[in-house]
């Protein structure tokens, strides 16, 4: 098997994640889908690392994880405060961008 298959898998997961972001209304699930997309990227990075024979890809993936962790912390805090004020975690309820 050619390890390039990992890349195909990564793009598949990424696309599924993206579709999830677009389809789901629950902010928590949307957030999970974002995490799925990040993980797909990480998989691709790890595969690239293997492809090139150096560890830079893994470093980037590592940083991605750290950033993702930070993002999750802040994002979930936002969801919690949104839920507290609106009693809903639906992203469609916050449609205040419309004039």
């Amino acid at each position: 098997m050619n390890p390039v298959n990992y890349l195909y898998l990564a793009s598949l997961l990424f696309t599924i994640g993206a579709a999830g972001v677009l389809i789901r209304r629950n902010a928590i699930v949307v957030f999970m889908c974002v995490e799925l997309m990040l993980n797909a990227c990480n998989l691709a990075l790890v595969t690239f690392s293997r492809m090139h024979g150096n560890l830079d890809g893994q470093i980037i993936a590592f940083f991605t994880m750290v950033v993702a962790a930070a993002e999750v912390v802040v994002g979930l805090a936002i969801i919690v405060s949104l839920f507290r004020s609106r009693h809903s975690a639906s992203v469609d309820d916050a449609s205040l961008m419309k004039l």
């Binding site: 390890p3 990992y6 898998l9 995490e35 993980n39 990480n42 998989l43 790890v46 595969t47 690392s49 293997r50 893994q58 993936a61 590592f62 994880m65 993702a68 962790a69």
Partner: peptide, 19 residues
């Protein structure tokens, strides 16, 4: 598991622990 299979042992463990 895939990380581990790709030689990213540290990341594989971190993935499980952190994620």
């Amino acid at each position: 598991v895939f990380y581990l299979a790709n030689g990213a042992y540290f990341l594989g463990i971190v993935q499980i622990v952190v994620y």
